[in-house]
Nucleic acid binder design. Structure first.
Lengths: 205, 205
DNA sequence: CGTTAAATGGACAGACCTGTACAGTTTAGC
DNA sequence: GCTAAACTGTACAGGTCTGTCCATTTAACG
């Protein structure tokens, strides 16, 4: 009878509580903020018993932590998809910008409100472990850009890291502004500015 | 015993409740976030009766709104001070970057955590009036930059607005990263990058 | 069928939240 | 000194918060 299980799972079987909780938490945490979202709201949206939450996560803080980790992994997955279609380091850098635009587009229907990771960090006090998760995420983004620039400017590593920081600031700032305005047009502008910077850097060589 | 009171008044008389509340709210809201900070915490830090809070503000939301307005005004005051010492539009643009660095420095002792306005916006749901206050604040910052660039590149208004957006992204992104890292070095980098962009733009003419 | 793991629903404790009420005290200006 | 305005301290109402507990039901699988 394992085929029933597999079949049901394939068609529309109820997903395990942990998964449902993470999906519900993602929606509520992103839309309303972590602190303003109560456990009861999350379990109601997940349609799950409170006991099931505390069987999967030892506390709300751990659920928040899982939310942060999940969003980081999702970002990486989106980025890898974007990267697949690229040819060369210049396009690979722009794929990072496109990944941000994808995030904005994904959040558009429910209400785009900027970077979910950064928004959580804004709620956490100095010293909270969650802030380090977000800091490392942003460092990863910058490192990915710098890595591609290393290929684009092989004989100028110093310029690659400086330009990488520049581009990551550009990207992060555009995301913040886009989040305030509720749409992704600022991110499109940033992509254009980034492309011009890339062309300028390669022209010089 | 009125001389004790008066003496204290002459030396450092107790400031009115509203003022004390705004100072206390600024500290707690910035350090711990708006939602995580209760009214009781604010009045305890302000050393003020709860009645005094509700005599000055009709609700916590109005206190938050006053906090946002105050921070915007403070930013403008810091900016004007920075602007005084400048000679020419190039330095005026960099004064905006210096203003951000001043904000980071001011928050350093208690724990720098990025832009106080943006952090509040990150807690507010889409449609909240507070988000518009922050959005307009950031637009003001960009417009100030664009205004200086209009003087720097008088015959190229289109370039001025594009470069202004670029610089404001750079600034905002650096602030976000600096907040995550807890110090202002990213802002110093952004200032350097901005100066290079300004030089590049004027060289072309 | 029987075992085991997962999930349920709801009650509960104890703390904290916002906002109100009220009676009394302090302060400033005339 | 008197009046009006500002402020105090505290108690309270009515919610909501996180986290625990427990008795029960459901589902998977040998």
């Amino acid at each position: 009878m394992s085929e029933i299980k597999t079949g049901a799972a394939a068609v529309g079987r109820r997903r395990p509580a942990r998964e449902r909780l993470l999906v519900a938490a993602a929606r509520r945490f992103y839309a309303d903020g972590v602190t303003a979202t109560g456990i009861d709201t999350v379990i109601a949206e997940a349609d799950v018993a409170k006991t099931s939450l505390y069987n999967n996560f030892s506390s709300k803080a751990e659920l928040v932590r899982a939310y942060l980790d999940t969003r980081h992994e999702e970002w990486l997955a989106t980025y890898r998809t974007r990267l697949e279609g690229t040819a060369g380091p210049r396009e690979a850098v722009l794929a990072v910008f496109d990944t941000y635009a994808d995030c904005a587009e994904a959040a558009r229907e429910t209400g785009f409100r900027g970077c979910g990771l950064l928004n959580v960090a804004a709620e956490l006090p100095v010293g909270d472990a969650g802030r380090d998760v977000v800091r490392r995420h942003k460092e990863t983004v910058e490192e990915l850009i710098v890595g591609h620039l290393g290929q684009l400017l092989p004989e100028r590593p110093g310029e690659a890291s400086a330009l990488g920081e520049h581009l990551s600031f550009l990207l992060e700032g555009a995301m913040a502004r886009a989040g305030l305005e509720g749409d992704g047009s600022r991110l499109a502008h940033a992509r254009t500015l980034a492309a011009a910077l890339l062309d300028g850097a390669t022209d010089k060589s």
